[in-house]
Nucleic acid binder design. Sequence first.
RNA 1: GUCCCCAUCGUCUAGUCUGGUCCAGGACACCGGCCUUUCACGCCGGCAACACCGGUUCGAAUCCGGUUGGGGACGCCA
Length: 475
Amino acid sequence: MNTVITRFPPSPTGHLHVGGARTALFNWLYARHMHGRFVLRIEDTDTARSTDESVQAIFDALNWLGIDWDDGPYYQSRRLDIYREYLDKMIAADKAYYCTCSPEQIDEMRKKAMAAGEKPKYDGTCRNKGLSVTGHAAVRFKAPQSGTTVINDVIKGEISFQNDELDDFIIWRSDGMPTYNFVVVVDDITMGINTVIRGDDHVNNTPKQIQLYHALGADLPVFGHVPMVLGQDRTRLSKRHGAMAVTAYREMGYLPEALVNFLVRLGWSHGDQEFFTRKELIEYFTLENIGKSPGVFNQEKLLALNAEHIRNSTPQHLFPQLRPFLKARGLNGDDTLTPETEKLIEILSPRSKTLEELAENTRFFYEDTIQYEAKAARKFLKPVALEPLELVCRQLESLPDFEEKTLEDAFRAVMETSGLKLGKIAQPVRVALTGKTVSPGIFEVIALIGRSKTINRIQAAVDFIKRQPEKDTVR
RNA sequence: GUCCCCAUCGUCUAGUCUGGUCCAGGACACCGGCCUUUCACGCCGGCAACACCGGUUCGAAUCCGGUUGGGGACGCCA
């Protein structure tokens, strides 16, 4: 086979949503896997709904996901001359004709057909009128009225349609703009697209497009229709299913590689493997392993996958992406990764499912005043904790260094003098240092925040306990 | 309504083409346990599915037919 050329043709009428991103990913991955080319084309022939902001939003999302293109972006709105040329060919060859029926008349036809239990379609009123260019006429494709059109779908297999199901659809609007089915075919032909991977919702357009390829005397590309992504309620994904914009996931602290991994795994598989790096996806991705049935977008699985990707990342990789979350909380304004922050990310990443969570978890390091969680203080900052807290404090004051090993020895010493178990000592210290009952290892925390902060915080906790009225601490 | 597609645990899926190795495997979630100074991580275990009916066959999750269920499309949107 020649070089594989795939494409992604979003229409800029909103942000890039996860379903579209998955389609883009499949095309991109396949092109990369086959060492082919990937084309980006903006389908903006619907001038009423297309916006520049949407175009920018799509670029932004694609960039974030790491999807790059070899050719384009093309804008259909700038290719009108090409479409016009092909339209003229069609008319000259008597494969298309002008139609002056009004939308109201068409509506009437559709209603009648529906009522008669038939598929609503154009009745061909103008088909043989031989109308020529008039001021305000649409152009219809003279579709074959008998026979069968077969799609050889690489994903779904053979799909056939009776041609009498198809009607003379409009390829050029009366307002002077071409329509979807026509421009897609002209573009795919002129851009050399030979592999079309797209959503399931396009299968019904495919016979029309195949007829157009025939009318234009062009070779057919390989078609592959991927099943839809459904929401929890098993209907087609839409806004009411919650966050569906790709960039919304960035804002919630998801890693692009996690979203990519999740989206690709939704409908495609490689044996039992669940976790994939981008490199692996490119290496393993083939069309044969795309499933035929629609799948539900499962937020929980995506979250778990995100946690796994965070866990498997390095602080160097995480930091630039974490920075906006840190800054938003006023926690760290650094532009470069310091050794302390590196260590901090390292110990926090196994217990953070999103970057947002990770940023939240860094508070004990960047904020000097520790807010005790009510529950944590009630449970551990009690008079019984005074002794171990003060003993630990004394030990730390005289320690030669703050290596984790040294700290561990110091705690053991406190265990001996006090006769308390490590838990009784470590938990109050943990609350004193982080305000929570949950944190990374206590020695790691101490080593990280250093001698003076540790001592100050323990001291503050001691003061806190002493300030508590008797009745609150006794019960 | 008409046309098209789909059908394995709650969800994502392996297995289906090339019937037996599948009383169906993995993952998420959930429930136990271990590890541990806490929480995570990790590890061990558990729960849980071949939609239904009929046929072909020595044998069917796998092949065929029907039923049911779900999704999609029927625009001078893409």
